[in-house]
């Protein structure tokens, strides 16, 4: 009996320890799953370029590039950026095609606090790739009355 209890405790402890490694908020996970359309995004092929330490969360420059030949047979269909801690998990979604020539997009976004950003690219064959970046923000967006 005692042994079984110990075993159960060990399993419970393992679960608790294993969880945080994969932790993304449920909302972001759901948004990513909806965007990827069933395919589980794999890490790789996508590069999310963003400063590790950001002074001003009101305008954070980001660049997303995807390793793809961008031909009619093999191209990126869409790129989306998600965040974990803003009031809204969506940031921006780009629609691309073979006429884009190069799967590189740059923009400026708002970040409410230090958090994780995820960029997901969906390919024309249905698979999805992703990249993650942790960003520390010193001056947050959307907190003060005017900014």
């Amino acid at each position: 009996m005692n042994l079984r209890r110990r075993k159960l405790l060990a399993i419970a402890a393992a679960l608790v320890v294993a969880r945080p490694a994969l932790a993304t908020t449920a909302e972001m996970k759901a948004a990513i799953a909806a965007f990827a359309g069933g395919a589980e995004p794999r890490a790789g092929r996508v590069t999310l370029d963003v400063a590790k330490l950001v002074d001003n969360g009101n305008a954070v420059p980001i660049t997303v590039s995807v390793d793809s030949p961008m031909t009619a047979l093999d191209h990126v269909v869409a790129i989306a950026v998600f965040n974990e801690r803003n009031p809204n998990t969506d940031v921006v979604k780009f629609a691309l095609g073979p006429r884009a020539g190069k799967a590189v997009v740059a923009t400026r976004i708002r970040m409410a606090t230090s958090q994780k950003l995820v960029a997901v690219a969906r390919m024309n064959d249905g698979c999805a790739w992703s990249a993650t970046a942790d960003v520390i923000v010193t001056l947050a967006a959307c907190v003060e009355g005017d900014g």
Binding site: N58, A59, V60, N83, N86, P87, N88, D90, V91, V92, K93, F94, A95, L96, G97, R99, A100, G101, K102, V104, V105, A106, T107, R108, I109, R110, M111
Partner: peptide
């Protein structure tokens, strides 16, 4: 749109900065 055909699009959310800036590429056809 390039001569009427869409080559790039974006769906923006409140997390985009004021004065939204978007840089992208296209093939000169």
């Amino acid at each position: 749109r390039y001569n009427g055909e869409q080559v790039f699009g974006a769906e923006l959310h409140p997390a985009m900065s004021a004065n939204p800036y978007i840089a992208f590429h296209t093939v000169a056809t």
